[in-house]
C-alpha cells in the first residue's frame, strides 16, 4: 500500500523528468531545428502561449455567466430536488462528450452557422479591434474555438459553483426572505457573497481545463502558429500550444519532437499555476 502511494508520487516525478530530458534541449535550439520556421524556442512558444491564453480567456468569458446561472438553477431556483438532479445529469453528460466529437461538431455544424453573425459583427462593430478585418468565410476562428471550449468547461465550472451555492447557510436565506427580499435580492445578499470564492475557484479550474483543451481547438481553428492577434473573427488566427502539438507531432522527427515536448512542459507549467491557484481559493471557500 505504501509502495502504491509512493508509486503515484513517482509517476509525477517521472512525467517531469521524461519531459525535461526530452524537451530540455529545445530551449537552446536554433533556427532550422524548430517547427513552424521559428528562430528560437521563445519565438515559437510565445505566440502559442498567447493563443492558449486568448482562447481560454474567451471561453471563460463566455462560460462564466451561464455556469453561475445553471448552478443557481440546480440549487436555489430548482422547483424540486429532482430537477436539480436532472440538471446535474445533463451537466455530467455534457462533461462526458469526448473532445474530438465537440471538435467535429464545432467544425462542421457550429462554424458554418456563425459566419453570418461574424459578418454582421464586422459590419456593425468593425471599429472594435476584435472584429476588424475581413471575417473568415469558413467560421473557423478563435471565437468559434472559444465557444466550443466554453461549452466544454461549463460543466466543471457549474459543478463547483453548485457545490458552493449548496453551502449557503439556510439561516441566511431565511433571514433575507424575512426582510422582504425578492428571490434575486436574496441571491445577491446571501448566496453570491458566501459563494464568491467558489465561483472564482470554478473559473480558475475552468481556465486550466481550457488551456489544456487540445482536439476541439486543433480541429476548429484554422491557425497561423506564429501570429499574435486579438481579432476573433478573421481567417488568420493564432494557434494554441496544445493544438499546435497535436497537429504537428505526427509528422515531426528529432529536434522538432523535442521542441514540441518543451512546449508541453510550458503548457504544463501554465495550467499547473492556474489550477493550483484555483484549488487554493476553493479551499479558502471551504470546498474540497
Amino acid at each position: 500500500m505504501m509502495a502504491a502511494a509512493s508509486a503515484v508520487a513517482l509517476v509525477l516525478v517521472g512525467v517531469l523528468v521524461f519531459l525535461a530530458v526530452n524537451g530540455g534541449p529545445a530551449v537552446t535550439a536554433g533556427e532550422g531545428e524548430l517547427p513552424a520556421h521559428a528562430k528560437n524556442f521563445l519565438a515559437l512558444a510565445g505566440p502559442l502561449a498567447f493563443g492558449s491564453l486568448w482562447v481560454a480567456v474567451i471561453a471563460l468569458a463566455l462560460a462564466s455567466l451561464p455556469a453561475v446561472g445553471v448552478a443557481l438553477a440546480a440549487t436555489i431556483y430548482a422547483p424540486s430536488p429532482r430537477f436539480g438532479r436532472f440538471l446535474g445529469a445533463v451537466l455530467d453528460l455534457l462533461a462526458a462528450v469526448p473532445s474530438v466529437v465537440f471538435g467535429l461538431w464545432g467544425l462542421m455544424v457550429l462554424a458554418p452557422a456563425v459566419v453570418p453573425g461574424y459578418e454582421w459583427a464586422h459590419a456593425h462593430l468593425g471599429w472594435l479591434p476584435f472584429f476588424s478585418g475581413e471575417p473568415s468565410v469558413t467560421g473557423r476562428t478563435v471565437l468559434t474555438a472559444g465557444m466550443v471550449v466554453a461549452v466544454m468547461i461549463l460543466p466543471i465550472m457549474a459543478a463547483i459553483c453548485r457545490e458552493s451555492f449548496a453551502l449557503t447557510p439556510p439561516a441566511l436565506i431565511e433571514a433575507a426572505y424575512a426582510l422582504g427580499a425578492t428571490r434575486w435580492e436574496m441571491v445577491r445578499a446571501a448566496v453570491l457573497p458566501v459563494a464568491r470564492s467558489g465561483i472564482v475557484a470554478g473559473g480558475m479550474l475552468g481556465l486550466g481545463r481550457a488551456l489544456g483543451e487540445t482536439m476541439a481547438v486543433a480541429m476548429v481553428l484554422s491557425a497561423t502558429p506564429s501570429l499574435i492577434s486579438f481579432n476573433v473573427i478573421s481567417a488568420e488566427n493564432p494557434s494554441t500550444i496544445a493544438a499546435f502539438i497535436a497537429s504537428t507531432f505526427p509528422e515531426s522527427t528529432g529536434a522538432e519532437v523535442s521542441a514540441l515536448i518543451g512546449l508541453g512542459l510550458v503548457l504544463f507549467a501554465i495550467s499547473l499555476v492556474v489550477s493550483l491557484v484555483g484549488r487554493r481559493i476553493a479551499k479558502q471557500g471551504g470546498l474540497r
Binding site: 503515484v8 497535436a246 504544463f268 499547473l272
Partner: peptide, 19 residues
C-alpha cells in the same frame, strides 16, 4: 502529487509517455 496530476493536460501525458 494527485492534485498536480489531475491538472496535467492530457496531451502532456501523451508527450510524457512518448518521452
Amino acid at each position: 502529487a494527485v492534485d498536480i496530476m489531475v491538472s496535467i493536460p492530457s496531451i502532456v501525458a501523451g508527450l510524457a509517455a512518448y518521452a
